[in-house]
Simulated scan of single mutants.
Amino acid sequence: METMSKSGFLPGALTEDEMENLARNERMAIYVSNVANLVLFLAKLYASFESRSLAVIASTLDSFLDLLSGFILWFTSAAMRNPNQYHYPIGKNRMQPVGIIVFASVMATLGFQILLESARELIAHTHPSKDHDDEMWVIAIMVFVTVVKFILMVYCRRFENEIVRAYAQDHFFDVITNSIGLAATVLAIRYKWWIDPIGAIIIAFYTINTWTKTVIENVWMLIGRTAPPEFLAKLTYLVWNHHKEIQHIDTVRSYTFGSHYFVEVDIVLPADMVLSEAHDIGEMLQEKLERLPEVERAFVHIDFEYTHVPEHKGKA
C-alpha cells in the first residue's frame, strides 16, 4: 500500500502483453474445462446405465450440471466483456453472482431429490441387480474421470481469474463426489447393497451443503455487504496518504456490488482551494482507488468541513 500510495500503481503490475497472454491462457482453461466436462459426462452416463448405481447416477447428474454451470460462466464472462453503457450503465458484473445463484439452487434441489430417492430405496429394500461383468468397466471409467478432474483442478487453480477459479472449485467438488461414488459402487457390488444408497446420500448432503453456502455467499455479494475491516483500513491508509492537502477523512465506505467492491470516500480540503486543484486531487484519488483489483468503482466526494449531517442517508 505504501508503493501504491507513492506511485499510484500496484507493485509487480503486469505489462499489456503479459495481461493479454494471461487472458488467452484463462480462456484456454475455460475451453478445456468445458470440453472435458462434456466428454466426462458422456463417460459417466455410460457408467450409470451399466451399473445402475445411485451413487454413480448422483455423480453423473453433477457432471450434467457441470455443463450447465460451464454455459452460465461462459455466458456471464462473454457478457461482461461486451458492456452496453446505454442499457447497463454500471456494467454487467452482477450477472455472474446471479448466474451462480441460479445454478447453485438447481444443484441443491437435485441433491435433495437424490436424497429422497436413496432414502426410498433403503426403506423399500428395492435395488437393481448388479452385473459383476461390468464392474471393471465402471471402475475404470470412474477412476479415469476422477484423475482427469484432479488434473483440471490443479491446472485451473494456477489462475486468479474468478471464473476460472469457479471451474477449479467445481473440479474439486467432482473429485470428491466421484471418489465417493466409486467407493460406494465397488463396496455395494462386493459386500452389501445398501452401501450404494448410503454413498448417494453422502453425495446428496455434500451437494446441498456446498451449494447452499455458495448461494448465501453470492446473495451477500448482491445485497451490498460491507467490506472486511482490514480492507477498509487499507483504503483509509491510501486516502490519507494520497495528498498533503487532505485535512480530514469524513467517510470511507466500501460494500459488495457483485464480485467486487464499490468505494465511497468523503475528504476535506482547504476551503480556499481553487476548484481545478480540488478536482484534480479528487480525480487522481478515484483513479488510484479503482486500480485496486478488488474495486469496481470508486466515488470521491470533496468538502471543506466535516461537521455537517451526512448528505446521503440509507432508506428504510
Rank of each mutant, 00 (worst) to 15 (best):
T3W: 02
G12M: 00
A13P: 10
A13L: 09
E16I: 11
A23W: 01
A29R: 07
V32A: 14
N34V: 12
A36T: 14
A36S: 15
L38M: 14
L40Q: 11
A47G: 12
R52T: 05
S53K: 07
L54K: 11
I57D: 02
I57S: 13
A58Q: 11
L65Y: 10
S69D: 03
I72Q: 00
L73Y: 03
A78T: 04
M80Q: 10
P83F: 00
Y86G: 03
H87N: 01
G91P: 05
F103I: 07
S105K: 06
V106Q: 04
E117P: 05
R120P: 01
I123F: 01
I123R: 01
M136G: 04
V147G: 01
I151W: 12
N161S: 04
A166N: 13
Q169R: 15
H171M: 01
F172G: 15
I180F: 11
V186H: 08
I195T: 06
G199I: 01
I203T: 09
Y206A: 12
N218A: 02
L222W: 06
R225E: 14
W240H: 09
H242E: 03
E245K: 13
D250Q: 11
S254P: 00
Y255K: 05
V263T: 12
A271G: 05
M273Y: 07
H279A: 08
E287N: 14
K288A: 04
P293C: 00
A298R: 01
Y306K: 15
Y306E: 02
T307S: 14
G314N: 12
